[in-house]
């Protein structure tokens, strides 16, 4: 009985067990059809291998040199080629710190809206007054109250709102409580 062609193909490739190989060899002695098939597979294999290219050592060495350049470049570009490694916990901590720094920066930037929001000037004396500084920018309610204590005279307080569209003013309630509106100014 003839062998399956797949078996004959594997036989040509030397992929069968010793026992199977011997069995086929003895069969081939008496079967022209199988022998012809095995010969065909053998020639086909040789022809395909013959059509291959030779890889010279010159190419091998030139690619090795190129690899040397490429790997040295990748070492310099460490981060993108993952030449160093950070633990995930450290990466998460660093990310949070980065976000916190950015957040604080923005907060401080908008906090600046409160400065120079108050101006104090003398309402009665001619402008400019020698006795009292006119148009003095102050940063807090406490400074204005201090002026009230020093100069017991009517004063005009101008609250200049910031130019930016979003801002907060702190201290107004305190200022309103201290101001004496009953005098009539």
């Amino acid at each position: 009985m003839c062998f399956n062609e797949q078996i004959l193909s594997a036989f040509v490739d030397g992929e069968l067990s010793e026992e199977q190989g011997e069995s086929i060899e003895s069969h081939l002695l008496g079967c022209g059809a199988c022998r012809s098939r095995v010969e065909f597979y053998g020639i086909l294999t040789e022809k395909v291998k013959f059509s291959g290219v030779d890889t010279s050592t010159f190419i091998q060495e030139s690619i090795w040199t190129r690899l040397g350049h490429a790997t040295s470049t990748s070492s310099r570009l460490g981060f993108w080629h993952r030449r160093f490694f950070l633990a995930p916990s450290v990466m998460v901590s660093l990310s949070f710190m980065f976000i916190a720094v950015i957040g604080i920066g923005f907060f401080l930037l908008f906090q600046d809206n409160g400065s120079n929001a108050f101006y104090v000037s003398n309402a009665d004396e001619p402008f400019p007054s020698e006795n009292f500084p006119v148009n003095i920018p102050v940063d807090s309610i406490e400074q204005i109250l201090a002026y009230f204590d020093i100069y017991d005279e009517p004063m005009e307080v101008v609250i200049q709102l910031p130019d930016s569209s979003s801002f907060t003013i702190q201290g107004e309630p305190l200022f309103l409580l201290k101001a004496n509106y009953t005098v009539g100014y």
Binding site: I59, S62, I63, A70, T71, H81, R82
Partner: peptide, 16 residues
């Protein structure tokens, strides 16, 4: 083919 071989070896080299 040379470029692709180089790429394969680079990926191998950069394997963690």
């Amino acid at each position: 083919a040379e470029d692709l071989c180089q790429e394969a070896f680079l990926r191998y080299y950069n394997k963690r």
